[in-house]
Design a protein around this nucleic acid. Structure first.
Length: 441
RNA sequence: UCCUCAGUAGCUCAAUGGCAGAGCAUCCGGCUGUUAACCGGAGGGUUGUAGGUUCGAGUCCUACCUGAGGAGCCA
């Protein structure tokens, strides 16, 4: 009879509890924790949408039910039926009077769930990433990640962009600078993409405004809180766009993403303890400074930057700290930038490029530029970099057949998520991070 | 690739060169409103690996392995 009754109660999500107070409901999920006080049991359930404390009194429950709940082990999967009640003493403000509980799979007591509510080291957590994902904090981060991606797509889709994804397997280096992952491609070799940009340029000349969004791979042996070997990047590319257009697009995109996350994911930001006041300040326009000014500012703030070098991580932090919103740094020395960047007509030693640095020390979240549209200039740059022109034959075609000024940028999703969540390391912003010394699980 | 740090119970960590311990987790017992519950008890160890110094090494030395933080490079 109890089984029949439990089937009759509607299955609800914990996040919708408020709408079902006073009713008999069914939750499907896992045991998060169990506390015991003599004749009282307080199982806490989770279902992926939230936590719900249950309560079982020995006096009113059947001995079988009481014992079944008492024997529950952490993360056992279950279905529980009971009456939902507002309860100020329960975390979350609601409580379930448990009337029936069916264990779907019991976690063996001899081999308990490894991640306890206590603290753990990062090595242990990374080794158990597949289970760590179940924690409230990781769930909140992944929900913010989802919102960031949704906001990015929403922004471009509503702004006249067409999604056209670049290939992941590529025949050669896009930029020739970073180290690539090599894979077997039948009897040949191929490489995992390090950027979809060159392909996005071809798409921009077909579609006008386009973006690609996919995984990106860097075999660099970077070992910092800002690096993964596999990460997700969104890369818009726009025909007839010049540097100012690129900067306008970049700041509008970031402002939109921040606005959406604030509008839709405040509960998750609260779980993460994120100070949303800092995010509220991210309003248009963003400050724009030249590379020259950036060097002066960094050095005035105690840095020791040589003119002509790229900004290091510490330099970025010194600079970004001076602003309450992301800052756009434009016109770097061409010598330290990629071969395809259009030179500044006023100062040809500078590239028409821009990096966006996130506040609070989160570093570069966007890198972009106006591309060289002149065939001869591009050929000379490819030669100067010692790159094989044959590999770029199709790319040069774009400058032979109706070339126009164009540009775009790449935005690293994980860095944006880390910034918005206020977390230390990008490895927590992707379900299964790939870093130099970890490819498990 | 370079620099720094770490590795002791399932987890988080202690232990002057001198008997390898605590808290949590697990198991048993107690408690009718717990909030990472609390209280009592039990089980649980090749101290990352291999050498070396020493009467004696978790501790000191060498090499290696694994991981973390940072640099460079990048988003």
């Amino acid at each position: 009879m109890a089984e029949t009754a439990s089937q009759a109660a509607p299955a609800i999500a914990i996040r919708d509890a408020a709408a079902h107070v006073g009713r008999s409901v069914r939750l499907r999920g896992w045991l998060y924790n169990l506390r015991e006080s003599g004749q009282l049991l307080f199982p806490i359930f989770r279902d992926g949408t939230g936590l719900m404390q249950g309560v079982v009194f020995k006096k009113t429950a059947s001995p079988e039910l009481f014992e079944r709940v008492r024997q529950l082990t952490q993360e056992s999967s279950l279905e529980v039926t009971g009456t939902l009640r507002a309860e100020p003493r329960a975390p979350g403000g609601y409580e379930l009077d448990v009337q029936d509980l069916v264990v779907l799979q019991a976690v063996a007591a001899a081999e308990p769930y490894p991640i306890t509510p206590k603290e753990h080291g990062i090595e242990f957590l990374m080794e158990h990433r597949h289970l760590w994902l179940r924690s409230q904090r990781q769930v909140a981060i992944l929900r913010v990640r989802h919102e960031v991606i949704r906001a990015v797509r929403e922004f471009f889709d509503e702004d006249g962009f067409t999604l056209a994804d670049a290939p992941i397997l590529t025949p050669a280096a896009c930029e020739g600078t970073t180290t690539l992952f090599e894979v077997e491609y039948f009897d040949d070799k191929a490489y995992l993409t390090q950027s979809g940009q060159l392909y996005a340029e071809a798409c921009a000349l077909a579609l006008g405004k386009t973006y690609c969004f996919g995984p990106t791979f860097r075999a660099e042996k970077s070992k910092t809180r800002r690096h993964l070997t596999e990460f997700w990047m969104v890369e818009p590319e726009v025909a007839f766009a010049e540097l100012d257009d690129i900067m306008n697009l970049a700041e509008r995109l970031v402002a939109h993403v921040v606005e959406r996350v604030l509008a839709r994911r405040r509960p998750e930001l609260a779980v993460l303890g994120r100070d949303t006041a800092a995010l509220e300040k991210v309003q248009l326009p963003f400050p724009r400074i030249s590379y020259d000014d950036a060097v002066a500012r960094v050095n005035a703030a105690g840095g020791a930057m040589q003119y002509g070098t790229d900004l290091g991580g510490g330099d970025e932090t010194l600079l970004a700290r001076q602003f309450d919103r992301p800052v756009l740094v434009h016109r770097y020395p061409a010598a330290v930038k990629a071969f395809y960047m259009q030179p500044d007509p006023v100062r040809p030693d500078l590239a028409l490029c821009v990096d966006m640095l996130a506040p609070e020390g989160y570093g570069e979240i966007i890198g972009g530029s106006q591309r060289i549209h002149d065939l001869d200039l591009l050929r000379s740059r490819i030669a100067a970099q010692g790159l094989p022109e044959e590999a770029f034959r199709w790319y040069l075609d774009l400058r032979r057949f109706g070339s126009v000024p164009h540009g775009g940028f790449g935005m690293g999703i994980e860095r944006v998520v880390a910034w918005l969540c206020g977390i230390e390391h990008v490895r927590e912003t992707i379900p299964f991070p790939r870093t130099i010394y970890r490819i498990y699980p």
